[in-house]
Amino acid sequence: MKRNALCLKYKRRPLVEKDRDILGRTTVVTTNVHYAVKRIRRNAVARIVTA
């Protein structure tokens, strides 16, 4: 892949949430992010196919 071949656009920055179970003494942490990728230059991206 060549430089500036793809564009990455965030719809929302990473959102981190955590929840604590005081009886089990555990903490659960989750994160998610929403984004889209667009190919800007057609001849700058290679396609790799594996079987």
Rank of each mutant, 00 (worst) to 15 (best):
M1W: 13
K2P: 02
K2C: 06
R3E: 14
N4H: 11
N4P: 03
N4E: 15
N4R: 14
A5K: 05
A5E: 08
L6A: 11
C7P: 06
L8G: 06
K9R: 13
Y10V: 06
Y10N: 12
Y10L: 12
Y10H: 09
K11S: 07
K11H: 10
R12Q: 13
P14R: 07
P14M: 07
L15S: 02
V16G: 00
V16I: 06
V16H: 00
V16N: 01
V16R: 01
E17K: 01
K18W: 01
K18H: 00
R20V: 13
D21Y: 03
D21P: 01
D21C: 06
D21Q: 09
D21A: 09
D21V: 04
I22L: 08
I22R: 11
I22T: 11
I22A: 08
I22Y: 13
L23H: 14
G24K: 13
G24T: 11
R25L: 11
R25T: 15
R25H: 15
T26I: 10
T26C: 13
T27K: 05
V28I: 08
V28A: 15
V28L: 07
V28Y: 04
V29C: 01
V29P: 00
V29Y: 02
T30H: 00
T30F: 00
T30E: 00
T30P: 00
T31H: 02
T31F: 01
T31Y: 02
T31L: 04
T31Q: 05
N32Y: 10
N32K: 09
V33P: 01
V33N: 02
V37W: 05
V37C: 12
V37M: 14
K38E: 12
K38T: 14
R39A: 12
R39P: 03
I40Y: 06
I40L: 12
I40N: 08
I40T: 12
I40F: 03
R41P: 02
R41Y: 03
R42T: 07
N43D: 14
N43Y: 10
V45S: 14
V45R: 12
A46M: 10
A46S: 14
A46H: 11
R47C: 04
R47F: 02
R47G: 02
R47S: 08
R47Q: 09
I48C: 05
I48K: 04
V49N: 04
V49E: 07
V49Q: 10
V49Y: 08
V49W: 03
T50P: 01
A51Q: 09
A51V: 09
A51C: 12
A51N: 15
A51G: 12
